[in-house]
Amino acid sequence: MRKALTLLVSGLVAALLGVLALGGLAAAATASAAEARDSAKSAREAAQKAGKPDPFTPEIYGTR
């Protein structure tokens, strides 16, 4: 009984990790150029709101 329960819990955790990993991989794989543009746009807007320089300004190596 105890062994079956351990197997069940471990199986569920492994399955959850598998789903998370595969889901994440699928999301990363389908990231399109448009999404990359949107993500850059959000970063710009967030920087603007925080009063920080645009991280995609050519003169800027990056922001912390």
């Binding site: 197997l7 492994a14 990790l17 998370l20 990993a21 994440g24 999301a27 794989a29 990359a36």
Partner: peptide, 26 residues
């Protein structure tokens, strides 16, 4: 059972940081 847990452990880094895949999600 051990194999199952070890498989889960191998997947853990990917599950925690999936956006390394596909060149850092594009």
């Amino acid at each position: 059972l051990a194999l199952l847990v070890l498989a889960g452990a191998a997947l853990l880094p990917v599950a925690v940081m999936p956006d390394l895949a596909f060149g850092g999600a594009g």
